[in-house]
Amino acid sequence: MADALFYVMAVAAVLAALGVVLAKNPMQCVLSLLASFFALAVIYLLAGFQFLAAAQILVYAGAILVLFLFTIMLLNLGNPGSEDPTDVRMFSRANAGLMVVVAAALLFVAALGVRRAGPLPVAASTPKTGLDPIPALAGEMFGRYLLPFEAISVLLLATAVAVVVLAKRDRRPNEGGRT
């Protein structure tokens, strides 16, 4: 049962991911991405990672994709016209074939690598109960991995500040008197 569900969700995730790249309408791309996130969340659940699944939905589907939707709605990217000539050339048959071959080769190499390396050292060193119980997860995150965690937080904060600075500089000449 769980195995069958895993395969259904895996196929759904891959199909939805293809939809993100191939759909003409940007709105459909975003919805495909949403479907892909959901399928991934179900796979996390099947693997026993409840917290990860909930975080995936909460952060990606609930917050980040909503921002994407906002952008698409406000810029009115709705019409699938072909003003952009690179669009057509990029997906010519030869290019698409090349892309599929390269991607398949890369995946194959990666799969071989994973098979040869065996279980990851991190996975081997985790406690028997798994990382999912929230106290264990918090203990790892704010104990062993505190420095990387804080470094990423600072990086994100710096990015947010940088975006505000960039947006402000662009607008100043047009605003005439108002800060």
Binding site: F51, L58, A61, G62
Partner: peptide, 11 residues
């Protein structure tokens, strides 16, 4: 978390 995650989808 389940409530927050699904509640955020109502949007």
């Amino acid at each position: 978390l389940y409530i927050l995650a699904l509640g955020g989808l109502a949007i």
